[in-house]
């Protein structure tokens, strides 16, 4: 029997009937059509299914959908502003941090959560924050560079925005 689940996905309130055994990842992909979230290992090892739950990265394969009731979920589809890429997405493209792309949604969400919490991370901070996201193509170097680049871009944007606000 299905149960009614109410949650907010990418700032939009959603209501969806789900099986009690369905994971958040399955519901995002199969019920809500948000296939940007990838399911890799299904056991919390690879991080491909990473989404933000109330702003914190979690493996959506290890969260029951019903456990997300009343909470806020951000998927990769929620980052871009219309056609305009989110600064972290833009930095990944710029740095060549994407090859096959399967890990990219999870990787970008982990990086985004880090930069929200810590706007000027060290390389070690970045590597730690991304340690739950596996990439089998890039060797991680460009992903780390992209995240550090995004931090610089966001800082510059912030400075420009605050100088525009000054009288």
């Amino acid at each position: 029997m299905k149960k009614l689940l109410q949650l907010t996905v990418n700032t939009v309130p959603r209501e969806v009937a789900v099986h009690a055994h369905a994971t958040l990842g399955e519901v995002l992909r199969e019920e809500l059509g948000l296939t940007g979230t990838k399911i890799g290992c299904g056991e919390g090892d690879c991080g491909a299914c990473t989404v933000l739950l109330d702003g914190e990265p979690v493996n959506s394969c290890l969260v029951l959908a019903l456990q997300a009731s009343g909470r806020e979920v951000t998927t990769i589809e929620g980052l871009a502003d219309g056609e305009g890429l989110h600064p972290v997405q833009a930095a990944f493209v710029q740095a060549g941090a994407i090859q096959c792309g399967f890990c990219s949604p999870g990787m970008i969400l982990s990086a985004t959560a880090l930069l929200r919490r810590m706007p000027a991370p060290s390389e070690l901070d970045v590597r730690t924050a991304l340690s739950g996201n596996l990439c089998r193509c890039t060797g991680y170097q460009k992903i780390v560079e992209a995240t550090l680049g995004a931090a610089r871009d966001l800082a510059t944007e912030g400075e420009q925005a605050s100088s525009r606000r000054r009288p």
């Binding site: 919390g44 990265p57 924050a129 996201n133």
Partner: peptide, 9 residues
Amino acid sequence: VGSPQVRNR
């Protein structure tokens, strides 16, 4: 324990 994602849960 685990990874950042696992530690959040």
